[in-house]
């Protein structure tokens, strides 16, 4: 069964043009999918469509076979968690564990179950030691881990990260990416990572590039990065390591197209020695 399946989904904001146009996207269970795209490409709109915050003008969305409609809205929302961009705008409580409990409280779980889930969620993001900490005193990465835990407390099968690393420093970004990778591997949570940091897409099984509300490219991350020129037309910049490899090739050094610094170093060493 597909984790997520959209068929011919279109959506436009009032007065604006199409934000999502005739989108067909299938995400398999357990998959780690990266969604790339420049600002305004429709990638954040996609995140809001997939758990019913926005309603498509036409087309259907199915989550594990359940259609996303008024009747099944909360059923789907329990399965599809979204972590948003700004860590400060998604916490409702001042204390870490109170915020993590919020989602589980909303769906009316018994207290013992909520306690269990808070424990599990905080453990999964490595924040058990800070369960009684004050949210406003945490670092950006820690706040975003709390937000992930808040989503995990609902035991979702799909987790969407809508530019959740965009406002973090490199260290915070690494923290989040590691946690997400772990959740995908160990908890078998299907991950949709929406980002404009192309390095992050490297961790994914598959990457799609969005442009003007459509899917422009679908490939493995490495396959996508190999198409330098095409990416530029979608206003996406290559990771620096990719640019270096490209320039070296242009300068006559024989190196492979790669995003792995180790591999690049090896290639450079080999061709220089020769």
């Amino acid at each position: 069964m597909h984790a997520i399946e959209t068929k011919d989904v279109s959506f436009s904001y009032e007065g604006g043009g199409f934000r999502i146009a005739h989108l067909d996207l299938t995400v398999e269970e357990g998959e780690f999918l990266a969604v790339l795209g420049h600002n305004g490409s429709g990638k954040s709109t996609l995140a809001r469509l997939l758990n019913g915050i926005l309603v498509p003008d036409s087309g259907t969305i199915r989550v594990f076979g359940t259609p996303l409609d008024d009747q099944h809205l909360y059923e789907v929302r329990k399965q599809v968690g979204v972590v948003f961009q700004n860590p400060d705008n998604q916490t409702v409580a001042s204390i870490v564990e109170d915020d993590v409990a919020f989602g589980a409280e909303n769906v009316g779980l018994p207290r013992e179950e909520i306690a269990k889930r808070v424990e599990f969620a905080l453990g999964a993001v490595g924040m058990l030691g800070l369960r009684n900490a004050v949210v406003s005193r945490l670092s950006g990465g820690q706040k975003q881990r709390v937000a992930i835990a808040g989503v995990l407390a609902l035991k979702p099968r799909v987790m969407i990260l809508d530019e959740s690393t965009a406002m973090l420093d490199p260290r915070g970004r690494r923290e989040i990416v590691e946690v997400v990778k772990k959740l995908n591997r160990e908890e078998k949570i299907t991950v949709i990572l929406i980002t404009h940091f192309m390095e992050e897409a490297l961790l994914a099984d598959r990457a799609v590039v969005m442009n003007r509300g459509e899917i422009a490219l679908t490939d493995t991350p490495a396959g996508i990065f190999a198409r330098h020129e095409e990416l530029l037309t979608y206003n996406l910049a290559l990771p620096r390591i990719g640019v270096i490899a490209k320039k070296l090739t242009e300068g006559g050094l024989r190196v492979r197209d790669t995003l792995d610094p180790e591999q690049l170093a090896e290639d450079i060493a080999r061709s220089v020695r020769r």
């Binding site: 915050i53 909360y74 929302r77 948003f84 700004n86 998604q90 409990a101 409280e105 909303n106 808040g150």
Partner: peptide, 26 residues
Amino acid sequence: RRADELGDAMDARCYMGGKKRTKYKK
């Protein structure tokens, strides 16, 4: 703007008013 985003985040975490809600800390 923050309120708007918070509203989305609360929706995404299945907030549906007080009726069915339970409490973690009783």
